[in-house]
Structures are given as C-alpha cells and as structure tokens.
C-alpha cells in the first residue's frame, strides 16, 4: 500500500510566513522568506508554514509548496477576495491564537508593512521593521532581527524576549529563494475562519500610474544624478537613459538646488526613499543625506570621477570615469541594441 510520506510526520510548525502573492512572479520576497524560514525552522527543530488568504489561491499554494513550504494554512473564501488589512488581520491573528507559532515573517511590501503592525498590535507582541538579517543566536537561542537604524548607517539587533510570536517584516532581496521543486509535497490545513468584519475600505479605481511624480518610489529602475553630472544638458541625458531602461529619474539635493530636477525627484533624508531592483547613481559623492534614501536598492551601479568617493562603498559595481562620457556611450549602445 501507500508509503507514508514525510509530510505526514506531523510535528509542530512554529515558523510562519505570510503569503503575499500580489504580483507573484515579480515579487519574490515571500519565496525568499520561505527559504529563510525553513533554515530557521530546522535550527529550531520545527517546520515552516505559509499563511495564504484569498479566493482561488490554489496556484499560489502550489508555488509555495514547490519553493519549500512544509505546511500551508489556507482560507479560500470569496470574502477574502481582495487584500484588506482588517479582514486579513482578523484571520491571521485568530490562527496565531490556535497554532501559536514562535516566529511570523512577512515581506516588507506595501501590504506587509500595513498588515503586520496591525496583527502584532492585536496580539500585543513585538514587530521589527524592514529587517536585513535574521538569525538564531547560538548562545541565548534568541531570535535576532537586524534592522537598519539612523538612515542605515547603524544596524540595530532587535529581540522580542517574552511575547510571541516574534514578528518581523523583511526587506525584499535579502534572502535567496529555493529552486522550484515540482516533486514537493506539503501539508495543507484549512483552519476555521473567525467572524469576519465587514469591509470598510473600498478601492474604487485602480490604474497603472503614469505620472512621474509618484512612481519614482515604486520604480524598478532608478537613475540618479548629482552635482557631478555637470550641467542641465547632461542631466537631461539621465531621462533618456531612464526611458531606455523603463525607469525613473531621481536627484540629490545639489542637483535639485542647481535646478536640474524638481523637488519631487529629491532622494534621501528630506526627500523620497527608493527600493529599485537597479539603481544607477551618477556624479553623486555619497553623502549620508542622500544614501539614506537608496539603501533599499537591490543592485547599485555608481559612476564617479573620484575613485575615493564614499558612494563606491555601497556600490555593487563602481565605475571611475567621466559622467558625461559614460552616459553618452551607454545611451548610444542601448539605442543600438533596443
């Protein structure tokens, strides 16, 4: 007869991940957290589970299984059709009270950042924001959540000593997802739904944002210019480059002050923060006021004439060269290829 599978070896599942499937094939942070959660779970001798709420979520359930989830806690219900902070809080918090996980993680996505504070508050437990590292301290067994502080120049190691679960939102792109395994099997659990509150928030219109003003913070590619760009004419080339790469243009304070870009493009402490997949920063020295706004970028390419510029300290690729020359050649080459 049938062999017992590993999934049947029932055990506790004490590390939970919130399954944020919005924009699934682009937004990989949930998969990254499943991988990290699995590593944490094996240190704790437990399993990793993913909470998936919504309607018609089968596809996502299967993706999470393929990427390493041991347990799926799912509610497939018309009332949960669209993301809603209050509804999702009610369900997730009630399930935490049933299963009592030790750790509960979510990606620091727009929704994760909105949902998790609310769940943590309802459960009267601690939450750390936008973590860049997670580990179990070998000496004390504490779950250490590392989060950037003071514009990212310092790291704070945060613990939640007493309350459970220990909750954290995690910066996208920090951990690596496990490869897709079509052979994977997991345990699927449909816990009971609590009484659901009525929806009080209604999205009446939703359209792709075209206005440049606001999409900078959501852009996948950001090109930033600083004083070293040299002139307004050179700065205009940043827009060409951004256009070619489907990105947006940001500016440092000196570039804004020079009138090359509007205040709405200002990045940094007094401006916007961006978290693109790719940030190309040109003619910027790397002052803290500016770099605080770009620390969330996944890949940073910096172009600067001065090889000792601090910006190179946080660049994945540093190019020592003339901003204008590099920009012109890069645009020329992209025009040729695209």
């Amino acid at each position: 007869m049938l062999k017992r599978n590993r999934y049947m070896d029932r055990g506790t599942c004490l590390v939970w991940v919130f399954g944020d499937y919005a924009d699934y094939f682009q937004n990989r942070v949930t998969l990254q957290l499943i991988a990290k959660g699995k590593a944490l779970a094996s240190e704790l001798g437990t399993r990793v589970g993913v909470v998936v709420l919504g309607e018609d979520i089968g596809q996502y359930v299967m993706e999470y299984v393929a990427h390493g989830a041991d347990v799926i806690y799912a509610a497939d219900n018309n009332a949960l059709k669209d993301y809603d902070v209050e509804l999702f809080t009610a369900v997730a918090a009630s399930w935490v009270e049933i299963f009592r996980p030790e750790i509960f993680l979510a990606g620091a996505t727009a929704f994760g950042r909105e949902l998790f504070p609310r769940i943590a508050k309802r459960l009267r437990t601690g939450l750390s924001a936008d973590c860049v590292a997670l580990e179990i301290d070998r000496e004390t067994g504490a779950f250490v959540q590392t989060t950037p502080a003071f514009g990212g120049d310092l790291l704070a190691d945060v613990v939640t000593p007493v309350m459970r679960p220990q909750m954290a939102t995690v910066h996208p792109g920090i951990f690596r997802e496990l490869p897709h395994d079509p052979f994977a099997l997991a345990e699927l659990i449909h816990p009971p739904l609590p009484n659901l509150p009525e929806r009080k928030i209604e999205v009446v219109r939703r359209r792709k944002e075209k206005a440049r003003r606001a999409s900078l913070t959501d852009a996948g590619v950001v090109i930033v210019g600083g004083k070293g760009v040299g002139s307004r004419a050179n700065f205009d080339k940043l827009f060409q480059l951004a256009e070619l790469l489907g990105g947006e243009v940001g500016a440092t304070r000196p570039a804004v002050n020079a009138g090359w870009a509007g205040e709405e493009r200002l990045l940094g402490q007094t401006g916007k923060s961006v978290r693109p997949r790719l940030l190309i920063t040109i003619g910027t020295s790397g002052a803290l006021q500016y770099t605080a706004g770009i620390r969330g970028s996944e890949t940073v390419i910096a172009v600067n004439r001065d090889h000792s510029a601090p910006i190179f300290g946080l660049a994945d690729l540093g190019i020592v060269g003339d901003a204008d020359r590099i920009l012109s050649l890069l645009i020329e080459e992209l025009n040729r290829r695209l």
Partner: peptide, 23 residues
C-alpha cells in the same frame, strides 16, 4: 515588546568591484 539588543555599525558592502579604464 521589543528590545534593542545592540547597535552596531553597518558593514560597508564589500561585494562591489571598482573599475577604472577606457570609457
């Protein structure tokens, strides 16, 4: 519910390479 266990300096990224040469 949370405690800051310790503050430490963020390590400078070391994975980056810095290149010079012809444009």
């Amino acid at each position: 519910a949370t405690r800051v266990w310790r503050l430490r300096a963020a390590p400078h990224r070391t994975k980056g390479e810095i290149l010079t040469g012809q444009a």
